[in-house]
Each structure stands twice: as structure tokens, then as C-alpha cells.
């Protein structure tokens, strides 16, 4: 909005005003106009955020409410949002089912191992690629994405056979390795963008102060990109935590993860919505806690590189 238009809308200054007053008033009007504009923008943003929150949050809230419904309420036609009668029966039934607790432990083991594997491999790989800009590095980072281009089912069955041949059938470590194939390529890409945002001068200064290259990486660069590492860790953790297909193909008794157990509530003979949603709600808790715990780091990671220059 131009100053001229604001002045026109504000009208002419009163005749009794001193010569400096019109200018001040014009500035005042300008400030008020800008302020009003900002308020409008903020209101629109809040509305958009609220809409986005509803769109993202509603499915989860619906899941949560369904987990407290009675069996007949879960299949009501037309469906109801809030339970007509609140019950904890679904939680008792889902958590009391054999194998559920073990599947939680398996999910945690698998996700933690997979996350650590991804970070241990992605951090040095991304650092090498960004700091030593070699042709092979560029080829590598492009090639890393190839696994993302192949449908998981195409590599799932061969991976399951390989793990079985390696004597790792039905172990969390086999599933963790499989999950790492999903998260590693994007972890490398994410970490590369974070390393790119760190000025080389920082490392050079550390080197001048007596650090080796690895020392500079460990003492200077990694602390700077810790937000990025948190983001990458969450991404890798979630990729493993929610993964279903590989878990379905590779696990049996010792390592079955919770997503498979949740899917087991849908059988050929019916769908136990109550228990399924109760277990899904419980399964969401660790991820929500992890996200809250690392929230500060995530925000830092998301803005990393935004003001580089």
C-alpha cells in the first residue's frame, strides 16, 4: 500500500495545524495503516494456520475419540465424532493382547538402531560430499536417491531373502538395516544441506586454533548443525517407527513391530476399530514426546542456513 493512497484516504490536515503536523499525521496514519495491514495479515495467517491445524489434527483427534468409543459406536452410521459413551475397554483389550508389549520393545529397538545407523553413516557422508566437492561425490549423492525411486516392495522381498540367508531372519537388527535403506538417502541429502549452510571460515578458524580436520568437524561443525542432526534423527526415527511393509516381510515372532500388530486388528472376518485406534493412539505417544523434547532443535534445524551470507 503506497503512502500516497494512505494520505488521500486520511483526507486533508486541519487548517489549525502547525506546518509540521501534516507530515507527522501522515506518518501516524502511515504507521496505523501499516499496523492494520499487519494485523490483517496476521489474522489471515492465524486462520490459515487454524485450518491447517484442523486438517492435520482432525484425523488424529478422530482416532483418539474412536479409541474411547464402545464397539457399536465405532461403526455408527452416520459416524459420530465424540463417543456417546466413554470407555477404556479398547485400551484394556488392545494392550492385553499377546505380543503387543513385545512389539513396542521391538519397535523402539528397531527405530533406535536404524536412527543411529543412519546418522553414523549420513553425517560423515554428507560432510565429505559438501566439503570435498568431487565429481564422484556428486554422482554418489544422486545415486543415493535411486533407492527412493524403487518401490519398497521391489526391494523388500530380496532384502528379506538376504537377511534370511545371513542368519538374521526375524531379528530387529535385520529390520533396522532394512529401514536404514529407506532413511539413509534422505538423511544424507538433509545433512548435506545443513553442512552447506556452515561457513568454511568457521572450520578454518578452528584449524588455525590447532584443530585437525576431524577435530574441527567434531568441535565446531557438528555443534553448529546439531539442530539439523535433530531433524534428521527425527526423520530417520519416524521412517522406521511407522514402516510397515519391510516389517511385514521380515518379522515373525521375535521382532514383529507394532505397525504389523495394529494391522492385525483388521482381519478377514472383521475390523476391530476400537482396539486398533487404541493401540495406534498409544503408539503415537513416543513420537509426540520425542518431537516435543527436540522441538527447540527442530526449529533451529529448520531455520539453519536461512540467513547464510
Amino acid at each position: 500500500m503506497s503512502t500516497a493512497s494512505i494520505t488521500t484516504k486520511a483526507g486533508p490536515p486541519p487548517s489549525s495545524a502547525s506546518p509540521s503536523q501534516p507530515v507527522l499525521r501522515r506518518r501516524g496514519v502511515n504507521r496505523e495503516g501499516l499496523e492494520a495491514g499487519r494485523r490483517s495479515t496476521r489474522t489471515i495467517l492465524w486462520i490459515l494456520l487454524a485450518v491447517a491445524m484442523v486438517l492435520y489434527g482432525f484425523p488424529f483427534l478422530y482416532l483418539l475419540f474412536t479409541s474411547f468409543k464402545t464397539p457399536i459406536d465405532t461403526i455408527a452410521v452416520p459416524p459420530t465424532i465424540l463417543p456417546r459413551e466413554w470407555t477404556l475397554e479398547n485400551y484394556t483389550s488392545a494392550l492385553g493382547r499377546s505380543g503387543v508389549v513385545a512389539s513396542f520393545i521391538n519397535s523402539i529397538q528397531t527405530a533406535v538402531i536404524s536412527t543411529l545407523l543412519s546418522l553414523v553413516l549420513a553425517v560423515p557422508a554428507a560432510y565429505g560430499i559438501t566439503r570435498y566437492k568431487t565429481p564422484s561425490g556428486r554422482v554418489f549423492i544422486m545415486a543415493a536417491l535411486v533407492t527412493r525411486m524403487v518401490p519398497p516392495v521391489a526391494i523388500g522381498i530380496p532384502l528379506a531373502s538376504m537377511m534370511s540367508s545371513a542368519g538374521l531372519a526375524d531379528t530387529p537388527i535385520a529390520l533396522s538395516i532394512a529401514h536404514t535403506t529407506i532413511s539413509l538417502p534422505l538423511s544424507i541429502w538433509l545433512m548435506s544441506s545443513f553442512f552447506e549452510s556452515v561457513p568454511r571460515d568457521l572450520e578454518e578458524a578452528a584449524t588455525v586454533d590447532g584443530c585437525s580436520r576431524l577435530g574441527a568437524l567434531w568441535r565446531v561443525v557438528i555443534p553448529v548443525v546439531s539442530g539439523g542432526i535433530a531433524v534428521t534423527a527425527i526423520f530417520a526415527f519416524l521412517a522406521s517407527w511407522n514402516e510397515f511393509l519391510f516389517a511385514l516381510l521380515m518379522t515373525a515372532i521375535r521382532s514383529q513391530t507394532t505397525p504389523v500388530v495394529i494391522a492385525n486388528f483388521q482381519t478377514q472376518f472383521g475390523l476391530d476399530w476400537g482396539s486398533m485406534t487404541a493401540l495406534a493412539a498409544v503408539y503415537s505417544i513416543p513420537v509426540i514426546l520425542l518431537t516435543l523434547l527436540l522441538q527447540r532443535k527442530i526449529v533451529a534445524g529448520m531455520t539453519l542456513g536461512a540467513v547464510k551470507g
Binding site: N106, I113, A169, P172, A252, R254
Partner: peptide, 16 residues
Amino acid sequence: VALVATGCGAGGPAPS
């Protein structure tokens, strides 16, 4: 812990 548990098969309900 995870590797030890994995090796011991602690994560599963019964040995395969």
C-alpha cells in the same frame, strides 16, 4: 542395550 536385547531375543514373545 538394543543390540544385547536383539541378540538375546528379548524383544519377542517366544523363541523362533
